[in-house]
Structure formats: C-alpha cells, structure tokens
Computed example of a mutant assay.
Amino acid sequence: MDWDLLLRLAHIMGAVVLMGTGAGIAFFMVIVQRSRDPKLIAHVAGIVVLADTLFTATAAIAQPITGALLAWSLGWSLWESWIVVAIGLYLFVGIFWLPVVWIQIRLRDLAQQAADQGEPLPEAYHRLYRIWFAFGWPAFAAMIAIFWVMLARPNFW
C-alpha cells in the first residue's frame, strides 16, 4: 500500500467534505430562509447542525492531522512558507466557522420557539442570520485561497 497516496487521498477527501458540506449548508440555509416559515426553518436548521457536527467537524479535525502526516511523509517542513500560509488561512476559516456553528444552533432554536408559539421569527433570529450570512463569505474565500496555495505551493518568503 502506498502510504503517501493514502494520505493525499484522505487530505483531499477532507477538503472536499469541508467545502462541499459548507456550500451545501449555506445553500439550504439561504433557500429555507426565504420561506420565512419558522417550522420549516427549524427543521432544516436542525439538519444543518447535524451535518456540521457529523461531517464538517470531523473533516476539520482530520485536515490538520492528514496535512501534517503528509508533509512529514513527503519530507516537507511545516515551516515552508506555503504551508504556513495555508495553516494561517485554515485558522482564519476556523475563526469564522466556530461562531457560525453556535449561530446555527441559535437559529434552529429561535425558529423552533417561534413555530411552537405560532409566531413569526423574532428580530434576534434575523440579526443572527445576517451575521451567519456575512461570516460565510470570508470563510469561503479563504477556503478557495487554501486550495490555490495547496496546488501552487508558492514561495511567499
């Protein structure tokens, strides 16, 4: 068995899961938001929280592990400039992703409370949704930048 190939596959699959789940979650949250139906939003947000827990969190933990093992296996220093930049971008994504997880849980709970009470979504829900939406853009852009850095492996310094 080719250890390097297995590590590359695991690292690529982790990146695919992170980007794919993130894009899917964003799509479903944006689409369901347009319904303004608290019951439907609570249901979809519950699935989103589950998907983030099962897929995104697992891949987010696996990525640095597979990346470090891969670098070690290939003889690359973790201090090579492109690796340092990729790690920095990854941490940047995490700065936006961690609050988003909490926000998604709150959005689900606020929508469920509104559905249970037969009321429209409260202003707190709309405020949190706007923050959730805004946080997605820099995280998504940083993920694209990570892909570029990992493929091009430029010498930044």
Rank of each mutant, 00 (worst) to 15 (best):
A57H: 13
V48D: 06
V48P: 03
I103P: 01
V101S: 03
V100E: 14
V101F: 02
Q104M: 00
L69W: 12
G94P: 04
P120K: 10
V16H: 00
L78C: 03
I12T: 13
W97F: 11
K39I: 08
I105K: 06
I103M: 01
A86S: 13
V49K: 12
A134E: 02
W72F: 07
S81V: 02
M143H: 00
M29G: 01
L9S: 12
G94D: 09
F156M: 03
Q113D: 11
A152E: 02
A42Y: 14
P154Q: 07
W157A: 08
V48H: 03
F140G: 04
V17F: 12
I95A: 11
P38G: 11
P138N: 12
L18Y: 07
P138H: 07
N155A: 06
S77I: 08
L74H: 03
A59D: 14
V30N: 04
L151A: 11
I31S: 09
Q63V: 15
Y90F: 15
L151C: 05
W157E: 08
M19D: 02
A134N: 01
F27R: 11
I41C: 03
W3H: 15
V44S: 06
M29Q: 08
G118D: 02
H43W: 08
L151H: 06
P38M: 10
E80I: 06
W72N: 15
W3K: 15
A71W: 07
A142S: 13
L7P: 04
D37P: 01
G24R: 08
S81C: 01
D109G: 07
A42H: 10
A15H: 06
F96A: 11
A141I: 09
G14H: 02
G22Q: 03
V100G: 09
A57S: 15
I47P: 00
L70W: 05
P64L: 10
L40G: 01
M1L: 03
W79C: 04
Y129S: 09
D109H: 09
A124K: 12
M1F: 00
D109V: 04
A26W: 06
L98V: 15
G67S: 15
F140I: 05
M29W: 00
A145M: 02
R108I: 01
G88E: 10
A111V: 10
G22T: 04
G94S: 05
V93K: 05
I103W: 01
S35F: 09
V30H: 06
P122H: 08
A57D: 15
K39C: 09
G24P: 09
V100R: 11
L69Q: 13
Q63W: 12
T21D: 13
I105E: 10
A71G: 13
M29L: 07
I25G: 13
R108A: 00
R34Y: 04
A152V: 11
L18E: 12
F147Q: 00
R130Q: 07
G136P: 10
D116R: 03
M150H: 00
A62D: 14
